[in-house]
Amino acid sequence: MALRLSCPNCGSRPFTEFWFGGELRPLYREGMSPEEDYRRLWLPENAAGRQTERWFHHAGCRRWLTAERDTVTNEIHVVH
């Protein structure tokens, strides 16, 4: 079964219309130490279960979306 995402702008579409942007990570904050920045950039959670992640709808609205997906079952809970 191929994954489908329900884009809030375009409706239900196959994952092949999207680029995966990886798990949502904290953004760089002013004053972050190099160590904090290293951990943020290089040491992901890689959750087995519910993960908040980014997808770019390149073959549709061309917007970045945030989804909640279970990485064990691939069930997608929400996309916004």
Binding site: L3, F15, F20, E53, T73, N74
Partner: peptide
């Protein structure tokens, strides 16, 4: 596969 997963599908 182009997205992370443990699903082995």
């Amino acid at each position: 596969d182009p997205y992370t997963s443990y699903a082995n599908a």
